[in-house]
Write a protein that binds this DNA or RNA. Sequence first.
DNA 1: CGTCCACAGGAATGACGGGCGG
DNA 2: CCGCCCGTCATTCCTGTGGACG
Length: 428
Amino acid sequence: MYNSILHWNNWSEGLAFLTIQEKTQNKDLESIFSRALNGRVLFKNHKALQSDYVPDHLPFRAQQVTSIAEILAPILHNSRPSNLLIYGKTGTGKTAVTRHVMAKLNETCIDKKVQAMFVYSNVRMAGTEYRTLGDLASNIGLKIPFTGLAVSEVLFRIQNHIKTQGLKTVFVLDEIDYLVHSYSDDILYDLTNSSDKIAPGFMSLIGISNDLQFKEQLGARVQSRLSEEEIVFPPYSAEELRTILNERAALALNQSSYSGAAINLCAALSGSEHGDARRAVDLLRISGEIAEREGSPELTEKHVRMALQKIDQDRVSEALRTLPLHAKIALLASLNACKNDSPNASSGAVYEKYCELAKESGLEPLTTRRVSGLLTELDTLGLITASIVNYGRYGRTKKITPQITILIAEKSFDSDDTIKHLLAKTKN
DNA sequence: CGTCCACAGGAATGACGGGCGG
DNA sequence: CCGCCCGTCATTCCTGTGGACG
């Protein structure tokens, strides 16, 4: 029986498991399994720390909850609520509060037999205009093929569906700034401007934005329509963050299994910049997972620090692994160009290195324009920093500074032959 | 005080692999 | 199967620009 289990684990967990297996006696194995089975040493409700969890109680957000509820309330007597724009930095509870109110309102609607639909969609998760609309459509019970139609066609079908079914809908578009940034505000215009096409149904739009300047990017015609109402979410203070974390911890963890000090550290580490509650909760969850895997009876400050490291490492590895080939080469070129003495290089120098490396592995180098673009992408991923500097007479460049070491790159690139080859060359 | 470097980065366009309705 | 549209990646062409140098 053990054999089969071990065999299976080898497949699924690969080499990492092998080393454990070598060192571990059967006794230890049993204790690992029994701990996993009887579990619940640390966690009593793991869900409460997951990122999509919407808590029942939202501290320090009572005012926002009331505002949103008041704005949406008209739907209970079948009139169209105002469109709403919600601002606030990441992790200030925008999504949680909105979803919370939506859920409550939905309950009330069912209770009072009011026909209304509340639809939530995250634009950045959806990825594109098309998929966002598709997402909305499927949530109001309309099937849209996931490709093959024109965007305008999807829009038309949605409007038509609302019209013929007489639907009363509230659409929530999370991270709406992403949509406007990468596309345009055209669909927003069409969405907000369709009331006569969809009568007797109606549709309100709630936009959630991380970007406080978002409104300025909108064309005037959309601006006035979309932001009939506005709510701003301020960041949490360190004090508030601590309260929130404590509340979540109480929900998710067994009482005796964590220390106040660990919670405080979580709050301090993740909230110091701008009161990001989501980060803090994530950090707490990872800490708990690490502690549990370690078999520790208590979540301590040590685990929190380990978790912080893990989050960073994971973020980097993930980013590295999913990078397109030429972006990887561009990254290596940056590392290469900044290798000795100089901690940074001009984009021109990086491009030269890049060409060298690309030819080395038999690839046709991309143009400067494209590589410049790749470098900006690497910058937004935080793998390098690319700041623009002026050398006056001697031109104007992006100054490239890698944010990772060759060693980290090595760890994350281990499965790619072309890259491995170049990496070896880069190292010496 | 104007020039001019060494690029940045926007816009338009195209190739490509893929999925759809008809 | 065709014709259409999708998103992604890439190219080409382009205009813009801060400030040291002359």
